[in-house]
């Protein structure tokens, strides 16, 4: 399988130019990759009450909250610059945005600690237990 020879390089020098961007995880699939008036519509109409945020998207009620990246972790958005034509070629991605917290939204359900994304944030700490060096 020759595609195993190709690597995807992360152009780390691009972190310096990366903008800090707010990121939102939505409970729906939007069939679109590209620009959107997020601040004009979503941010401008978001209501903050205590720990819960509310907004609506396409007429549907969303409830959400902010989640911080686990300690020692940074949020990155990687973007591929020139997609190669074949599987065999090396690829390059650059860091287009960075973030230290994200907002996730549920459809109608208030955010809570049983939300899968909240539970998924357990992973880095558990990975540390599984993968950290063992003392002799």
């Amino acid at each position: 399988m020759s595609c195993n020879t190709s690597v995807t390089r992360v152009d780390v020098s691009s972190v310096g130019q990366a903008q800090r961007a707010p990121v939102h995880l939505l409970p729906c699939e939007i069939e679109h990759n590209g620009p959107a008036q997020v601040s004009q519509y979503l941010t401008a109409t978001t209501k903050d009450c205590k720990l819960e945020k509310t907004v609506s998207f396409r007429g549907r009620g969303l409830k959400g909250q902010e989640l911080s990246c686990p300690q020692g972790y940074t949020g990155l958005v990687l973007k591929e610059i020139n997609k190669p034509g074949s599987d065999q070629e090396d690829r390059t991605v650059k860091v287009s945005s960075v973030f230290d917290k994200l907002t996730y939204w549920n459809l109608e359900t208030p955010p809570n600690s049983d939300d899968t994304i909240v539970m998924a944030m357990d992973w880095p700490e558990l990975a540390e237990a599984i993968h950290g060096p063992v003392e002799d």
Partner: peptide, 29 residues
Amino acid sequence: KAFEEDFHSWFVGQTVQRDGRLLFLTPMD
């Protein structure tokens, strides 16, 4: 590791990203 649930997309800044996965890069032994 990819966190992946059906029916999810991202807003990143002023863009939509249809792929709603969240990738974790954690140190590995």
